[in-house]
Nucleic acid binder design. Structure first.
Lengths: 201, 201
DNA sequence: CTGATATGTAAGCACTTACTTACATTAGCA
DNA sequence: TGCTAATGTAAGTAAGTGCTTACATATCAG
């Protein structure tokens, strides 16, 4: 009948959505098949077993950190603007990949190895990107002597939890306006603890 | 036979542990009964249905924020020490209630209303406590003009994610030494963005 | 001892789940 | 046209799942 690749994609997308809504155990193969507009048997012919489906979803929807591409465009901006741009982009990426993030949070307990792999390919790489940027700032004398791994991690973690709290726990849309105000407040607090000129003690 | 209250407690504790390990759907009433050293029937006699068990666990293990009791003892310390004490206490509380936190994270998607209730009785109240302390500092002229809701939220969220990342995602023990160094780094970055004397621009 | 209360054992019910088998259909390619 | 690959329908299996029923036992207060 149809294009086998297209069929496969529809199955994976249905799986992503349903697992993110109901968890791995709560998402049944019957319902996935129905939502994908496909026979349940097709799923088993293509993926063998349900667990494989799950792994394939994690592989497929691991979002490559587009933060890296952003850095060059930002490198010439004033620090505050640069960090705000990075922060907004990070929040937007999380929003776009909401289903994926939900799965990571839900299944982190029950399938830590599988989730950890997906995690290190996404958020951890974003941390490294931000850290690289901060290191260059520090080398240029713009930052005082703080541990930059920690600083980068703190910065992104605040945004991650902001997203998690609003969109997942409270199931409330994180509006662009709210994103901007959160990020600018964060950058404010973050920067004035990091800028060299303000150390003095 | 035994004390009915004691039996009830054993069931609730087994439920807490098993749901935190395997999720609500993954924890079967048979296994809970076995781990509690109790007949499966006893569970249904005491709680009626599985969902009720879940709700009762959330109610029972909601940890009352002992942060509040800490504030008076801390009010006379220098800000840095005070925040470090608060931070360490928060991390320790999370560690003690690890099972409960895991459940909150896992089931946040699938049972948001139930989890949200437990959440607001714990972490949100801690935020308010910390915010109260910061407001007093600000009134005393020790902090510059930053939004203190946001600041308090940021502070605790960083610690929450630190805990989550280490203990849940990486299933690694967060040692007292690591807790201390994380908290002191956090307070360093946090404070120098908040202290009035360093504003200047 | 009596009766109530808390628990246990055993069997099972109605239902769902992941997964399978057997057979039919459709589309495209040679 | 006929072959192959991708899918579908239908029926079913074995193993759970939450939850129930019927009946027995043990403890303890009166």
């Amino acid at each position: 009948m149809a294009d086998p690749l297209e069929t496969r994609d529809r199955i994976l997308e249905a799986t992503l959505e349903l697992i993110s809504e109901k968890g791995y155990l709560g998402a049944t193969t019957r319902e996935i098949a129905h939502q994908a507009g496909v026979s349940e048997l097709t799923i088993f012919r293509k993926f063998g077993k349900k667990e494989r489906l799950f792994e394939e979803v994690l592989k497929t929807y691991t979002f490559l950190p587009r933060l890296k591409d952003l850095i060059p465009a930002v490198e010439n901006l004033p620090v505050q603007e640069a960090l705000e741009t990075i922060g907004i982009r990070f929040l937007r990426t999380l929003k776009e990949r909401k289903c994926f993030v939900r799965i990571m949070l839900s299944e982190m307990n029950t399938y830590p190895e599988k989730v950890r792999k997906a995690y290190s390919q996404t958020i951890e790489e974003m941390v490294q990107t931000l850290r690289g940027y901060l290191i260059r700032l520090q080398a240029a004398g713009q930052l005082r002597d703080v541990p930059l791994d920690t600083a980068a991690v703190f910065f992104l973690r605040i945004l991650f939890t902001t997203f998690m709290n609003a969109e997942i726990l409270n199931q409330r849309d994180l509006s662009p306006a709210e994103m901007e105000s959160t990020v600018s407040q964060l950058v404010g607090i973050f920067l004035h603890g990091v800028l060299a000129e303000e150390t003095a003690g």
